[in-house]
Amino acid sequence: MYFFNLDSGAALNVGGDDVFPAASTIKIPILVAFFKAVDENRISLSERLTMRPDLIAPEAGTLQYQKPNSQYPALEVADLMITISDNTATNMLIDRLGGAAVLNQQFQEWGLKNTVINNLLPDMEGTNTTSPRDLATLMLKIGQGELVSPRSRDRLLDIMRRTVTNTLLPAGIGPGATIAHKTGDIGTVVGDAGMVDMPNGQRYVAAMMVKRPYNDPKVVS
């Protein structure tokens, strides 16, 4: 786990540099890369992305059930990638943003030492990697106004606040707190990372990843 208080600078690092299969937490840096591309006029929010057959993915999401070669606005694709963890939407954005190698180079430039895309989603084998510290560092940069414009930051956090799965970090933040986050789960690994706003005005970034026996419910109860 890795926690950081944006107001006090206090940090908690318990194995936060350990490398884990990223599962769907890899969608956080992809989302940041998307909005950075928007800010740099390399992609527009309204641009229509084509759901090519080679990008259609099983497991999470609803786009997989739609007609191949359908088109969707880029912002809608980014929204689906996070809110319902749509794997097809993720693959569409990886493709549009230049592919894994281009994105991995960006992640390195942002200081994310352990965050790598090796395969398209769903990546049930866990070849895509990250670490709690990488994910928290990324959210910290967003919270400090780095990487993307204020307008894109607001859109990014709004999408992450509408993440449907709320059984991990949201279950422990207490009444009155809000969280912008993204979960990940490939059975043997679960993770969650995001930004927490407390009722007292304090803001934290938090990231946790856990290895477990396949689908063991005790880990996320």
Rank of each mutant, 00 (worst) to 15 (best):
V19P: 01
D158S: 12
L75D: 07
D123N: 13
A60T: 08
K113F: 03
A60W: 05
L138A: 06
T167E: 15
E76K: 13
D39S: 02
V205W: 06
A100Q: 12
V116W: 04
K218D: 05
K211Y: 06
S221P: 00
N166L: 00
N114R: 15
G201M: 06
I82C: 06
L156K: 07
Y65L: 14
E146S: 11
D123E: 12
N215V: 06
P21N: 05
N200S: 09
R153Y: 00
M1D: 10
V210A: 07
N104I: 08
D18P: 00
N200F: 05
M198N: 09
P150C: 09
V189F: 14
L156I: 12
V210L: 04
E47Y: 03
N104A: 02
L75P: 03
S221T: 07
L135V: 00
V102H: 09
L157Y: 09
D123P: 15
V190W: 03
V32R: 08
M51P: 09
A100F: 01
I28D: 02
K211I: 03
A207H: 06
G187W: 13
N41P: 01
A60F: 12
R52F: 04
D17F: 01
A74D: 11
P217C: 05
L80Q: 13
S149E: 11
K27S: 02
G111D: 04
G9I: 01
A100E: 14
